[in-house]
């Protein structure tokens, strides 16, 4: 798919020195939108061609082979794809775990991020400090400390067990129980809402202050301003965060990797999709099989992203809408 149009990229690069070197002259006919488009896109197109397209196409090819990383791949047709759905209960488990995670962790994360962004967009004392503090969990992301800490909070004598015990719920060790381990990872993801929050904050900052001023002069109240200015103006950023959450939570890897010690346990209860891709590809040396899984994930994410884009026509407000 990239081959067909790759010829446009060198052409665009070729234009670059001659045109941009010359002084813009009004008499000269301006470049067409097409030329400008590909000119601006040139670095990305080169990057796509050199660094991304090859590995992507190779992984597609590998998904139809038996490839152990060390010997030449052997073509097996659709066998990997058939095995995945017919003979691999762990794969189905990985799908279950991942979908549960995506549909809980992603919306909760967005909700918290938005609420905190709104809260931290007020001008109160120490706002910079608060922002930094609320971003800290996201900084700790893949650190070993998280794994140990999560045990301390959700483990046998952990804070959560103690609090629940106080209310008469005598529970167990959440983080290491097959029934609850996944929920502790959902909580971990919600807790690390910092990145989405920053993007929301940036979005809030981009809303022109004049809009609020005008509305205030017109006598609009707080709630009114929120519904009719803040929220609509923020929709492109909400949309962005939504798409990113879909993509990132389907690909969640690090939390399960560090907290389950890389195995997705106990009893595969935290076997995230990409963790299983990693286990098959690198631990079990089945890169062909892992690639097939990767491409199915691409399709799954692609469908959900497409749905988000289709829906965006109805609720996302762009200033450049014509």
């Amino acid at each position: 798919m990239t081959i067909g149009h790759s010829s446009e990229s060198p052409a665009a690069t070729g234009l670059s020195p001659s045109r941009s070197g010359a002084r813009p002259a009004r008499t000269r006919k301006p470049l067409s939108d097409n030329a400008y488009g590909y000119l601006f896109l040139a670095p990305w197109l080169v990057g796509l061609l050199v660094f991304l397209a090859g590995p992507t196409l190779v992984s597609l090819y590998l998904s139809f082979t038996d490839f152990n990383l060390l010997q030449p791949p052997k073509w097996v047709g659709a066998q990997n794809y058939i095995t995945l759905f017919s003979r691999d209960p762990r794969y189905l488990q990985a799908l279950r775990v991942t979908f549960t995670y995506v549909f809980t962790a992603a919306p909760l994360n967005l909700l918290f991020a938005l609420l905190l962004a709104l809260l931290l967009n007020t001008r109160i004392r120490g706002i910079s400090l608060y922002r930094a503090v609320y971003y800290v969990p996201s900084l700790l992301g893949g650190s070993v400390a998280i794994a140990i800490l999560w045990q301390q909070i959700f483990g046998l004598d952990g804070v959560v067990s103690q609090i629940l015990g106080f209310f008469g719920v005598h529970g167990s060790s959440w983080v290491s129980s097959p029934k609850q381990a996944l929920w502790t990872l959902v909580i971990l993801h919600v807790w690390q809402f910092g990145s989405a929050m920053i993007i929301f904050l940036a979005g809030l900052k981009q809303i022109p202050a004049e809009l609020y001023e005008a509305a205030t002069i017109d006598g609009a109240g707080k709630v009114h301003r929120f519904w009719f200015i803040t929220l609509p103006m923020l929709t492109p950023v909400i949309f962005f965060n939504l798409v990113l959450q879909i993509i990132n939570s389907f690909q969640a890897f690090t939390p399960a990797f560090i907290i389950s010690g890389g195995k997705g346990g106990p009893l595969d209860s935290t076997l995230f999709y990409t963790l299983y891709v990693y286990i098959q590809g690198f631990t079990n040396f089945r890169m062909g099989y892992a690639s097939a899984m990767g491409w199915i994930l691409l399709i799954i994410i692609g469908v959900f992203t497409a749905l988000a884009f289709l829906s965006s026509k109805y609720w996302v407000h762009y200033d450049d809408a014509r």
């Binding site: 798919m1 990239t2 990305w44 796509l48 991304l52 090859g54 590995p55 992507t56 190779v58 992984s59 590998l62 998904s63 990383l69 798409v243 993509i247 690909q251 890897f253 999709y273 990409t274 891709v277 990693y278 590809g281 690198f282 890169m287 892992a290 690639s291 899984m293 990767g294 491409w295 994930l297 691409l298 994410i301 692609g302 992203t305």
Partner: peptide, 16 residues
């Protein structure tokens, strides 16, 4: 295509 490049898990393209 640009969005698509975000969707393939890192581990299957890292070797190529």
């Amino acid at each position: 295509v640009m969005l698509g490049t975000l969707m393939l898990p890192f581990h299957v393209t890292v070797v190529p």
